[in-house]
Computed example of a mutant assay.
Amino acid sequence: MQKMGQLEELDLEDNCLRGEIPTWLFDLIYLTDLKLGGNKLVEKLDHSSLFPLFQFELLQQLDLARNNFSGKLPDNIGEATLMRKLVLSGNDFSGPIPNSISKMSMLSILDLSNNRFSGNEFPSFRALYLDLSFNKFCGGLPVAFYERIVVLLLSHNEFSGVLPPNLMNLSELACLGVHDNKITGEIPAFLSHMSTLQILNLRNNSFQGPIPNNLTNLTSLQILDLSDNDFSGEVTPGLEILVE
């Protein structure tokens, strides 16, 4: 593999690769883009260990999705400071998200969905696209998001409580998915001021009370799903509720 020492991009996704990540790959220190998704690779990580891939100073995109990785993300994940896209979905990672991930100041896409991440404390993310769905997160909805985030997916967790008013600070949010949680209360008035929303999915929670008239102010809204809640009263004329 010496002839591959200068390799910058490596795409091995959607094959039938098995076993652990080969050690020769850790010698490709000039990699900027590595795709290993859609295989049957096995790697049990430890939060106290150093995972070599996160020490690649030039790595900008890493896709480990849909494999058999497990364990807790290592504390050195934040050393990949040039990372722009990190996709770890569809594995068996568990535990909290390491605080060091907040050092990834250039990160724009972070997908941790379909794992077993847990806890209710979150690092400060600067991602424009953040998918934390299908995990074991609990407690109130986190609010430590980049104010310019565009897509925020938090569905299929164990979040509870009401929608926090801090969400109104997300001035460019186009998609908010919090369905299939344990969120309660009425739909807050501040949602009607989030004019950039195009998709709002509150399905399968414990919302109650009337459907607010002011939701019709969301003129950019294309999909609104309020199904499987405890709403009551009359439906506002002109409000189109899309049920999946």
Rank of each mutant, 00 (worst) to 15 (best):
L152P: 04
R66C: 10
M1N: 13
E244R: 11
E172M: 13
V151S: 08
M1R: 12
N201P: 01
G78D: 02
L86I: 11
V162L: 03
F26E: 03
M104K: 02
W24N: 07
L141E: 08
N67I: 07
G140R: 09
K44M: 10
N114F: 10
R203I: 02
L41T: 09
I29E: 09
A127M: 04
T32L: 01
L224N: 05
D92H: 13
D230V: 06
L86W: 09
I97R: 00
S220R: 15
A174D: 08
R84D: 10
D230L: 15
L200S: 07
G90F: 12
S195M: 10
N76H: 08
S160R: 10
Q2F: 12
P98Y: 02
S192Y: 09
H156R: 13
V243L: 02
E121G: 00
F137D: 09
T32A: 00
V243T: 13
S118V: 04
N15D: 05
D27R: 14
S94V: 01
L86T: 11
K182D: 05
P210I: 10
L200H: 08
L31T: 07
L28Y: 11
P237S: 10
V87T: 11
Q60F: 01
P74F: 03
L112P: 05
W24E: 12
L31E: 06
Y30V: 01
S49F: 04
N135T: 10
F54N: 05
R66T: 13
F190N: 01
W24T: 07
D131Q: 04
L86Q: 08
L82P: 00
A144F: 06
V178Y: 03
P52I: 07
G71I: 10
L152R: 06
M83E: 09
L86A: 05
P237R: 09
F26A: 02
D27M: 09
A189M: 08
H156A: 06
M4I: 07
L17N: 03
L167R: 01
S118I: 05
N213I: 10
L12I: 07
E158D: 13
S232N: 11
G71W: 02
N99D: 12
L221V: 13
G209C: 07
E147S: 13
P98F: 03
D111C: 02
L218T: 12
L153D: 14
P210A: 08
L36V: 10
Y129G: 01
A65R: 13
E244N: 13
L34A: 04
T219Q: 14
N213H: 13
T23V: 14
N169K: 14
I183L: 15
I223V: 14
H156V: 10
S105M: 10
P96C: 02
L176H: 08
D180L: 01
L176W: 12
L82Q: 15
F207P: 01
L36W: 12
F231K: 03
